[in-house]
Simulated scan of single mutants.
Amino acid sequence: MTPPLITLEEHFFSASVPSDLQESYSEQFKHVNGIYDKLCDIGETRLRDMDAGRVSLQVVSHAPGLYDPAACRAANDQLAAAINAEEVRAGGSTGKSRFAGFAVAPMGHPDEAAAELRRAMTELGFVGALVDNHSNGKFFDGPEYDVWWAAAEELGAPVYLHPNFPGDDLAPRYKGNFSDAAALSMGSSGLGWHTETALHLLRLFASGLFDRRPGLKIIIGHMGETIPFMLQRIQALSRRWGDFRRDFKTVYDENVWITTSGVWSVDPLRCILANTRIDHILYSVDYPFQRNEVGLEWITELEESGLVNEEQLNAIAYGNAEKLLGIRAPKGV
């Protein structure tokens, strides 16, 4: 029997989305039917699609690419209003509401990003943040970002590092003797998104961030963005990177959670189950870029595969998200 499902890499477009950001998603708009309308909806259409994939609760976040501080604040306000409206629809009870929120933050402005995270957590009731993996090629391992990481640790806010389109310095490296569409895909969901997010996590470790901020909670998607597959090699070679109080594998075990978003095969999970704590694996879909029904098919395949027992399946499906985010899957959905 399908357990309750909580998903947490699920996106929307706010009214603040600039036209150039919409252009970045041209390939997705071309290949995924009705995706723009679904991105703009945080109501009936989204709930209907959740029902189709038996998703009990969706943690909603803004799609990547929003940089302006005012636009980020407006997007968070819009999402908070939609969550509040869903609570009203559910009878005014957070125990029955089917939406929760991850904050978007203007990561090119670390001080303002930290302030927005505090506002979203303390005033809007969000449960963490989902932020772009870089700000036009700049990662978040520099000292200017300590204000951001300090806020995240103090608030106990899980930070989902979500892939972003290649920065201006990297985008040309994906171009070659093939179409621009192929280059755009390779630089994004075809490969680049995942390896660059893995690189970011390694940079954070090498910078000593997890020694300075041992309470951080980092989430990465897409079956761990290649890191579980490379984990033994990273563990061995990262010993050369500095003198750290905890090695990479310990940080991975204690500070990093991974989601299944958008990777619909149980094969990667065979690797993950061998080297990743079961309580750090979270189900997600990547809606509306992926269909909830496809995720449900994957859950069914996992249940039938024999790779996990019922307790482990329930943990991946909803239990681990409840513990990490302090949320509850609504009853009777």
Rank of each mutant, 00 (worst) to 15 (best):
R173A: 12
D243M: 03
K138V: 07
P172A: 01
K38W: 06
D77W: 00
T260H: 07
N309E: 07
D279W: 03
L204G: 05
E44H: 13
Y252S: 00
S14T: 06
I327H: 04
D20P: 13
A90P: 12
E322F: 02
G262Y: 10
A329S: 07
V308I: 14
S207L: 07
H162Y: 08
R54G: 02
I220H: 05
E153L: 04
P158H: 03
E123Q: 07
A80C: 13
V147E: 00
P18V: 05
L202T: 11
G215S: 07
G156D: 06
G167I: 00
G91F: 01
K249W: 10
F13T: 15
G221L: 01
G34I: 15
F289S: 08
L117P: 03
A152I: 06
E87H: 14
Y67E: 14
K249Y: 13
H11S: 06
A274N: 09
A100H: 09
L79H: 08
S19C: 03
N33E: 09
L5I: 11
A152E: 08
F29Q: 15
H162I: 11
R203N: 05
S93Y: 09
R46N: 14
P166L: 06
Q235Y: 11
V159D: 01
W149C: 00
R213K: 10
A198L: 04
A236S: 09
G108L: 03
S24Y: 01
L79I: 11
P64C: 01
N76E: 08
V59S: 02
E10N: 09
I220C: 09
E154D: 13
P4C: 07
S261E: 00
H62L: 15
H162K: 03
G95V: 10
V266T: 14
D247Y: 13
P64D: 08
G332S: 08
N177T: 11
V285L: 14
A198I: 10
S284A: 15
G125C: 08
R291K: 15
R277H: 12
E10Y: 09
G332F: 00
W264I: 04
P228W: 04
D267Q: 02
V333C: 00
D180T: 13
M50K: 08
R239I: 08
V256E: 07
R291H: 10
K30D: 12
G332D: 12
F99M: 03
P214H: 04
L324T: 00
S61N: 09
G306C: 06
G224Y: 01
E154A: 12
R173P: 06
G156M: 04
T2L: 05
V263L: 06
L130E: 08
E123F: 04
K249S: 07
V308L: 01
G137C: 12
T276I: 02
L296T: 06
G224L: 00
P166H: 10
I83F: 12
G208M: 01
P214S: 02
F12P: 06
L170N: 12
C40S: 14
D141E: 14
L313W: 02
R328G: 11
V60Y: 11
V131D: 03
R291D: 02
L47V: 15
I35V: 15
S188H: 03
P330R: 04
F139A: 10
L273D: 12
F139E: 14
G224W: 02
E154K: 04
Q235R: 12
Q58A: 15
